[in-house]
Design a protein around this nucleic acid. Structure first.
Length: 112
DNA sequence: ATACGGGCACCGG
DNA sequence: GCCGGTGCCCGTA
């Protein structure tokens, strides 16, 4: 795994999250080799300039990070719904939609 | 048992 | 210090 700036590595991982699946901020950080940096993951998405599936990132308990009533909350709900992920009471059912990547495959994809 | 929602500790930038 | 696109504990229903 080549050494890269933290945000870039997390965005790399994020791009691999398949349609219809989600990851938590902490999971994204973990997979990027930055355990315990959940909030950093959120910051990366905020500052991110390229196009990434930001809507596939939610809190570890399934709640959307944005507060209900904010435009981005609605946007995320719509994007997720379009992918077949139902958002009820501002949260998704992690048991059903969380991404569980095969770590070996992930490593290969990040390397080459 | 399970879901909802409030609240606060955590940890960089 | 201050401030988050967090995590997770805990009381309720």
């Amino acid at each position: 795994m080549p050494k890269k700036p933290a945000c870039e590595q997390m965005l790399q991982v994020l791009k691999l999250v398949p349609v219809g699946r989600v990851v938590s901020y902490g999971q994204l950080a973990d997979l990027a080799g930055l355990p315990g940096r959940a909030r950093l993951a959120g910051r990366c998405l905020l500052q991110c300039e390229e196009t990434v599936p930001w809507h596939r990132v939610v809190r570890s308990d399934g709640r959307l990070a944005f507060s209900a009533g904010f435009a981005q909350f609605t946007e995320q709900r719509i994007l997720l719904t379009d992918e077949g992920i139902s958002v009820i009471n501002g949260r998704v059912k992690m048991r059903e939609v969380v991404w569980k990547p095969d770590l070996y495959t992930l490593l290969v994809e990040l390397s080459g």
